[in-house]
């Protein structure tokens, strides 16, 4: 099962620093996390990028990942 590591900002809403998930795709991941942690909101998560095994995906809508993947929600940074 993929491992989701929450930054401290999200940990305040989940109460846990990391969890494993059955989801294997981004959309399923949002549904699963928001069902488990009511304070998490899909629209808030969608504003973040998702790092899959260290690769930051700014728009992960169609992304899938492996059962041993490490997932981190990450602020979108555009730069200047």
């Amino acid at each position: 099962m993929a491992r989701v590591i929450f930054t401290s900002e999200l940990e305040r809403l989940t109460g846990e620093s990391e969890v494993t998930v059955a989801a294997e795709a981004y959309r399923d991941l949002l549904v699963e996390l928001c069902a488990r942690f009511p304070k998490l909101r899909q629209d808030a998560l969608r504003k973040q990028a998702l790092a899959i095994d260290g690769i930051v995906i700014q728009e992960p809508l169609l992304e899938t990942f492996d059962a041993d993947s490490e997932l981190i929600f990450f602020a979108k940074i555009a730069g200047g």
């Binding site: 590591i5 401290s8 790092a51 260290g54 930051v56 981190i72 990450f74």
Partner: peptide, 8 residues
């Protein structure tokens, strides 16, 4: 780092 993303 504190923002959570491991360095490559």
């Amino acid at each position: 780092p504190v923002f959570g993303l491991p360095f490559q």
